[in-house]
Protein backbone atom coordinates (compact mmCIF):
# COMPACT_ATOMS: atom_id res chain seq x y z
CA UNK A 1 0.00 0.00 0.00
CA UNK A 2 1.34 3.39 -0.94
CA UNK A 3 1.77 6.32 1.38
CA UNK A 4 0.45 9.61 -0.02
CA UNK A 5 2.45 12.66 1.04
CA UNK A 6 1.28 16.19 0.27
CA UNK A 7 3.80 19.02 0.20
CA UNK A 8 1.76 22.10 0.96
CA UNK A 9 2.00 25.62 2.41
CA UNK A 10 -0.89 27.92 1.62
CA UNK A 11 1.50 30.70 0.69
CA UNK A 12 3.24 30.73 -2.67
CA UNK A 13 6.93 30.55 -3.42
CA UNK A 14 8.04 29.13 -0.08
CA UNK A 15 9.78 26.02 -1.49
CA UNK A 16 7.11 23.34 -2.07
CA UNK A 17 8.34 22.29 -5.51
CA UNK A 18 11.97 22.39 -4.37
CA UNK A 19 11.00 20.19 -1.40
CA UNK A 20 8.82 17.82 -3.44
CA UNK A 21 11.56 17.18 -5.99
CA UNK A 22 14.24 16.52 -3.40
CA UNK A 23 12.11 14.37 -1.11
CA UNK A 24 10.92 12.30 -4.06
CA UNK A 25 14.48 11.80 -5.30
CA UNK A 26 15.68 11.01 -1.78
CA UNK A 27 13.02 8.35 -1.18
CA UNK A 28 13.74 6.75 -4.55
CA UNK A 29 17.46 6.73 -3.81
CA UNK A 30 16.69 4.90 -0.59
CA UNK A 31 15.19 2.13 -2.69
CA UNK A 32 11.48 2.99 -2.63
CA UNK A 33 9.45 3.21 -5.80
CA UNK A 34 8.27 6.82 -5.75
CA UNK A 35 6.16 9.05 -7.96
CA UNK A 36 5.89 12.81 -7.69
CA UNK A 37 2.78 14.54 -9.05
CA UNK A 38 2.52 18.19 -10.02
CA UNK A 39 -0.91 19.51 -8.94
CA UNK A 40 -0.22 23.03 -10.18
CA UNK A 41 -2.59 22.87 -13.14
CA UNK A 42 -1.88 25.69 -15.58
CA UNK A 43 1.48 26.57 -14.01
CA UNK A 44 3.54 23.42 -14.10
CA UNK A 45 7.09 23.75 -12.86
CA UNK A 46 8.02 20.45 -11.31
CA UNK A 47 9.14 19.17 -14.72
CA UNK A 48 11.66 22.04 -14.94
CA UNK A 49 12.98 21.54 -11.43
CA UNK A 50 13.32 17.81 -12.12
CA UNK A 51 14.96 18.47 -15.50
CA UNK A 52 12.48 16.47 -17.60
CA UNK A 53 10.54 19.31 -19.26
CA UNK A 54 11.42 18.13 -22.77
CA UNK A 55 10.10 14.65 -22.15
CA UNK A 56 6.55 15.73 -21.24
CA UNK A 57 4.06 14.27 -23.73
CA UNK A 58 0.90 13.61 -21.74
CA UNK A 59 -0.10 15.02 -18.38
CA UNK A 60 -2.24 14.45 -15.31
CA UNK A 61 -5.39 15.89 -16.93
CA UNK A 62 -4.96 13.77 -20.06
CA UNK A 63 -5.00 10.71 -17.81
CA UNK A 64 -8.06 11.92 -15.88
CA UNK A 65 -9.89 12.52 -19.16
CA UNK A 66 -8.88 9.13 -20.51
CA UNK A 67 -6.86 10.68 -23.34
CA UNK A 68 -3.77 8.75 -22.34
CA UNK A 69 -2.89 5.89 -20.05
CA UNK A 70 -1.08 6.47 -16.81
CA UNK A 71 2.02 4.75 -18.16
CA UNK A 72 2.09 7.02 -21.20
CA UNK A 73 2.05 10.10 -18.97
CA UNK A 74 4.57 8.97 -16.34
CA UNK A 75 8.15 10.08 -16.96
CA UNK A 76 10.84 7.78 -15.62
CA UNK A 77 13.73 9.73 -14.08
CA UNK A 78 17.04 9.20 -15.90
CA UNK A 79 19.15 9.41 -12.73
CA UNK A 80 17.14 7.05 -10.58
CA UNK A 81 14.87 4.50 -12.21
CA UNK A 82 12.71 4.07 -9.11
CA UNK A 83 11.48 7.64 -9.52
CA UNK A 84 8.67 8.77 -11.85
CA UNK A 85 7.15 12.17 -12.49
CA UNK A 86 3.55 12.91 -13.42
CA UNK A 87 3.47 16.42 -14.90
CA UNK A 88 0.61 18.90 -14.58
CA UNK A 89 -1.29 20.17 -17.52
CA UNK A 90 -0.18 23.52 -18.87
CA UNK A 91 -3.26 24.67 -20.75
CA UNK A 92 -6.48 23.26 -19.37
CA UNK A 93 -8.64 25.11 -16.91
CA UNK A 94 -8.49 24.32 -13.22
CA UNK A 95 -11.90 22.68 -13.12
CA UNK A 96 -10.35 19.79 -15.00
CA UNK A 97 -9.40 18.19 -11.67
CA UNK A 98 -12.17 16.18 -10.08
CA UNK A 99 -12.29 14.25 -6.85
CA UNK A 100 -13.21 11.06 -8.68
CA UNK A 101 -10.51 11.54 -11.32
CA UNK A 102 -7.75 12.28 -8.84
CA UNK A 103 -8.88 9.50 -6.53
CA UNK A 104 -8.87 6.97 -9.34
CA UNK A 105 -5.35 7.87 -10.45
CA UNK A 106 -3.99 7.78 -6.92
CA UNK A 107 -5.56 4.38 -6.44
CA UNK A 108 -3.93 3.09 -9.59
CA UNK A 109 -0.55 4.56 -8.61
CA UNK A 110 -0.87 3.02 -5.15
CA UNK A 111 -0.65 -0.43 -6.66
CA UNK A 112 2.76 0.25 -8.14
CA UNK A 113 4.45 2.83 -5.95
CA UNK A 114 5.45 2.97 -2.30
CA UNK A 115 5.40 6.76 -2.00
CA UNK A 116 3.24 9.26 -3.86
CA UNK A 117 4.37 12.86 -3.42
CA UNK A 118 1.78 15.52 -4.25
CA UNK A 119 3.34 18.91 -5.02
CA UNK A 120 0.56 21.33 -4.11
CA UNK A 121 0.05 24.70 -5.77
CA UNK A 122 -0.18 27.79 -3.58
CA UNK A 123 -3.53 28.97 -2.26
CA UNK A 124 -6.53 27.02 -1.06
CA UNK A 125 -8.29 26.53 -4.38
CA UNK A 126 -9.04 23.34 -6.31
CA UNK A 127 -5.49 22.20 -7.04
CA UNK A 128 -4.36 22.67 -3.44
CA UNK A 129 -7.53 21.00 -2.21
CA UNK A 130 -7.11 17.86 -4.28
CA UNK A 131 -3.38 17.68 -3.51
CA UNK A 132 -4.15 17.43 0.21
CA UNK A 133 -7.50 15.62 0.12
CA UNK A 134 -6.21 12.04 -0.14
CA UNK A 135 -3.03 12.56 1.91
CA UNK A 136 -1.75 10.30 4.66
CA UNK A 137 1.10 12.64 5.57
CA UNK A 138 1.55 16.37 5.08
CA UNK A 139 4.84 18.22 4.84
CA UNK A 140 3.96 21.80 5.61
CA UNK A 141 6.62 24.03 4.08
CA UNK A 142 6.98 27.34 5.84
CA UNK A 143 9.39 30.26 5.76
CA UNK A 144 10.28 32.11 8.98
CA UNK A 145 8.06 35.03 8.06
CA UNK A 146 4.66 36.17 9.35
CA UNK A 147 2.43 35.59 6.34
CA UNK A 148 3.96 32.20 5.62
CA UNK A 149 3.37 31.04 9.21
CA UNK A 150 -0.21 32.27 9.18
CA UNK A 151 -0.96 30.54 5.89
CA UNK A 152 0.65 27.34 7.13
CA UNK A 153 -1.72 27.43 10.08
CA UNK A 154 -4.69 27.91 7.75
CA UNK A 155 -3.52 24.89 5.78
CA UNK A 156 -3.29 22.84 8.98
CA UNK A 157 -6.89 23.76 9.74
CA UNK A 158 -7.94 22.60 6.28
CA UNK A 159 -6.02 19.32 6.62
CA UNK A 160 -7.71 18.56 9.91
CA UNK A 161 -11.23 19.41 8.75
CA UNK A 162 -11.47 18.87 4.98
CA UNK A 163 -9.22 15.92 4.16
CA UNK A 164 -10.61 12.48 3.41
CA UNK A 165 -9.18 11.24 6.70
CA UNK A 166 -11.05 14.01 8.54
CA UNK A 167 -14.28 13.36 6.64
CA UNK A 168 -14.21 9.65 7.39
CA UNK A 169 -13.08 10.27 10.97
CA UNK A 170 -10.00 8.09 10.44
CA UNK A 171 -6.63 8.59 12.03
CA UNK A 172 -5.75 12.21 11.15
CA UNK A 173 -3.23 13.23 8.51
CA UNK A 174 0.28 13.19 10.01
CA UNK A 175 1.65 16.71 9.79
CA UNK A 176 5.31 17.73 9.75
CA UNK A 177 7.03 21.09 9.57
CA UNK A 178 9.70 21.83 6.96
CA UNK A 179 11.14 25.24 7.74
CA UNK A 180 12.86 26.61 4.66
CA UNK A 181 14.96 29.65 3.71
CA UNK A 182 16.31 29.84 7.24
CA UNK A 183 19.16 32.22 8.10
CA UNK A 184 20.69 31.46 11.51
CA UNK A 185 22.62 34.75 11.27
CA UNK A 186 19.42 36.79 10.94
CA UNK A 187 17.77 34.83 13.72
CA UNK A 188 20.70 35.63 15.95
CA UNK A 189 20.35 39.36 15.32
CA UNK A 190 16.64 39.13 16.13
CA UNK A 191 15.42 39.94 12.63
CA UNK A 192 13.99 36.55 11.80
CA UNK A 193 11.61 34.20 13.61
CA UNK A 194 13.53 31.30 15.08
CA UNK A 195 12.78 27.65 14.47
CA UNK A 196 11.52 27.44 18.06
CA UNK A 197 9.17 30.37 17.50
CA UNK A 198 7.63 28.81 14.41
CA UNK A 199 7.39 25.38 15.94
CA UNK A 200 5.72 26.78 19.02
CA UNK A 201 3.17 28.78 17.05
CA UNK A 202 2.26 25.92 14.73
CA UNK A 203 2.86 23.15 17.29
CA UNK A 204 4.14 20.72 14.71
CA UNK A 205 6.96 18.19 14.85
CA UNK A 206 9.99 19.54 12.99
CA UNK A 207 11.12 17.36 10.11
CA UNK A 208 13.97 19.68 9.27
CA UNK A 209 15.33 23.13 8.53
CA UNK A 210 16.52 24.06 5.03
CA UNK A 211 18.95 26.95 5.15
CA UNK A 212 18.74 29.85 2.71
CA UNK A 213 21.12 28.58 0.09
CA UNK A 214 22.46 29.59 -3.31
CA UNK A 215 22.74 25.90 -4.17
CA UNK A 216 18.97 25.82 -4.71
CA UNK A 217 19.02 28.31 -7.55
CA UNK A 218 21.94 26.47 -9.12
CA UNK A 219 20.11 23.19 -8.83
CA UNK A 220 16.92 24.48 -10.41
CA UNK A 221 18.91 26.21 -13.16
CA UNK A 222 20.27 22.86 -14.22
CA UNK A 223 17.14 20.80 -13.51
CA UNK A 224 18.68 18.75 -10.71
CA UNK A 225 16.93 18.22 -7.37
CA UNK A 226 19.21 19.89 -4.84
CA UNK A 227 19.41 16.69 -2.77
CA UNK A 228 21.78 15.37 -5.47
CA UNK A 229 24.20 18.20 -4.64
CA UNK A 230 25.65 16.37 -1.67
CA UNK A 231 28.24 19.04 -1.00
CA UNK A 232 25.66 21.75 -0.41
CA UNK A 233 24.09 22.46 2.96
CA UNK A 234 20.60 22.48 1.39
CA UNK A 235 21.24 19.09 -0.21
CA UNK A 236 22.37 17.67 3.12
CA UNK A 237 19.38 19.22 4.86
CA UNK A 238 17.04 17.41 2.46
CA UNK A 239 18.91 14.11 2.96
CA UNK A 240 18.37 14.53 6.69
CA UNK A 241 14.68 15.17 6.13
CA UNK A 242 14.25 12.01 4.07
CA UNK A 243 16.11 9.97 6.68
CA UNK A 244 14.02 11.42 9.52
CA UNK A 245 10.82 10.84 7.61
CA UNK A 246 11.84 7.19 7.30
CA UNK A 247 12.32 7.03 11.05
CA UNK A 248 16.06 7.58 11.39
CA UNK A 249 17.17 9.66 14.32
CA UNK A 250 19.32 12.50 13.04
CA UNK A 251 20.14 15.58 15.11
CA UNK A 252 18.91 18.87 13.67
CA UNK A 253 21.50 20.85 11.73
CA UNK A 254 21.66 24.28 10.06
CA UNK A 255 19.94 25.92 13.02
CA UNK A 256 22.97 27.62 14.50
CA UNK A 257 25.30 30.13 12.95
CA UNK A 258 28.33 28.36 11.53
CA UNK A 259 31.33 29.30 13.61
CA UNK A 260 34.60 28.58 11.92
CA UNK A 261 36.65 27.83 15.00
CA UNK A 262 40.25 26.86 15.38
CA UNK A 263 39.53 23.14 15.64
CA UNK A 264 37.23 22.92 12.67
CA UNK A 265 39.80 24.82 10.60
CA UNK A 266 42.38 22.32 11.69
CA UNK A 267 40.24 19.33 10.78
CA UNK A 268 38.82 20.83 7.62
CA UNK A 269 35.24 21.26 8.85
CA UNK A 270 33.04 23.75 7.06
Amino acid sequence: MARIIVVTSGKGGVGKTTTSSSIAMGLAQKGFKTVVIDFDVGLRNLDLVMGCERRVVYDFINVINGESTLNQALIRDKRCNLLSILPASQTRDKDALTKEGVGKILKELSKEFKYIICDSPAGIEQGAFFAMYFADDALVVCNPEVSSVRDADRMLGILSSKSLRAEKVREPVKEYLVLSRYSPERVETGEMLSVDDVQEILSLPLLGVIPESSAILNASNSGTPVILDEESNAGQAYSDIVARYLGEDRPQRFIKKQKIGFLSKLFGGR
Partner: peptide, 10 residues
Protein backbone atom coordinates in the same frame (compact mmCIF):
# COMPACT_ATOMS: atom_id res chain seq x y z
CA UNK B 1 13.95 43.00 17.83
CA UNK B 2 11.40 42.68 15.04
CA UNK B 3 11.32 38.89 15.26
CA UNK B 4 9.82 39.00 18.74
CA UNK B 5 7.16 41.44 17.56
CA UNK B 6 6.39 39.00 14.76
CA UNK B 7 6.13 36.15 17.24
CA UNK B 8 3.72 37.99 19.50
CA UNK B 9 1.52 39.10 16.62
CA UNK B 10 1.39 35.59 15.22
Amino acid sequence: PSASIARERL
